[in-house]
């Protein structure tokens, strides 16, 4: 009885989730009349705009990941070590981006950092790029912080720090050689998730007028028929790869930990 019902629920989920994926894949192959072909993919991949926006977004993702890790790891470490009472407050702040819509945050950026403000970031292309990167870091903050904080929970931060200090290590050494290697898996999980978020992000890039992959996809969607489906398949593949890599490194790290 329970089993039947369970299979039913699973089957429903399976149908609901595979149909759109089949739909987009099938559609992406239909560009040539009467037969399946990869024409749509060829067209998309050959588009210089695609290459431009895609590499822009990849670069932004990498910079965001680097900045996010540099910001989150020392903060989470410091809070656990020295200010445990502040953890709920810091956690609350990191969760805010889940509550405040991204469009509201970027709206605030546009008004706060415009050309006539005290910090005219939107005045130059580079300034806007930096602002967009901070925006992405904000969006990724809940995931990054959670991943790292969970990673830190599994190690005894205080003892490791004291042991390192007693051996003469400074804060930089402790963070780079003791804490980071121990939470590397967590940081990498957060990094891949950040990558998946940034690569297809639309709202912030569009409103800040940056040539990112998200707005490019939207533009193509408004003007073409088959290419968007091909793009969706590619984007799905990227997301899948990111999640797969998270699984892989988690499993790999469990393996090495068991061996130790």
């Amino acid at each position: 009885m329970t089993k039947l019902w369970s299979w039913g629920a699973l089957l429903f989920g399976l149908v609901y989730f595979t149909l759109p994926l089949i739909g987009m894949t099938e559609f992406s192959l239909k560009m040539r009349r009467g037969e399946y072909s990869f024409d749509a993919y060829a067209k998309v991949l050959a588009d210089p705009k695609f290459q431009e926006t895609f590499s822009y977004s990849v670069l932004m993702a990498l910079v965001t990941i680097a900045f996010g890790a540099l910001l989150v790891v020392p903060t989470a470490f410091w809070v656990r070590l020295k200010m445990p009472w502040a953890r709920p407050y810091v956690e609350f702040i990191t969760l805010l981006p889940l509550v405040i819509p991204a469009i509201v945050i970027v709206f605030g950026y546009i008004r706060l950092y415009n050309t006539s403000s005290w910090l005219p970031l939107t005045g130059t292309a580079m300034g806007t790029n930096i602002l967009l990167m901070f925006g992405y870091a904000t969006l990724a903050l809940p995931y990054m912080y959670r991943a790292v904080d969970t990673g830190l929970r599994t190690i005894d931060v205080a003892t490791l720090t004291e042991a390192a200090q007693s051996l003469g290590a400074g804060w930089g050494t402790i963070l780079a050689r003791i804490i980071l290697p121990n939470v590397l898996v967590a940081v990498l999980s957060g990094a891949f998730l950040t990558f998946a978020i940034v690569i297809g992000e639309f709202t912030m890039a569009a409103l800040l007028n940056r040539p990112a992959f998200g707005p490019y996809m939207q533009l193509l969607g408004a003007n073409r028929a088959y290419e968007p489906a091909a793009l969706a398949v590619i984007a799905f593949g990227i997301t899948w790869a990111c999640m797969g890599l998270i699984q892989l490194i988690t499993r790999f790290s469990k393996h090495t930990r068991a061996q130790r």
Partner: peptide
């Protein structure tokens, strides 16, 4: 994990290709 992050523009394309006016 994949599907919850498969939001935004490509998701819309997937649904358009499936139950849009000329969808599968």
């Amino acid at each position: 994990g994949v599907a919850s992050n498969f939001a935004g523009v490509p998701l819309a394309f997937a649904f358009l290709a499936t139950i849009g006016p000329v969808g599968l």
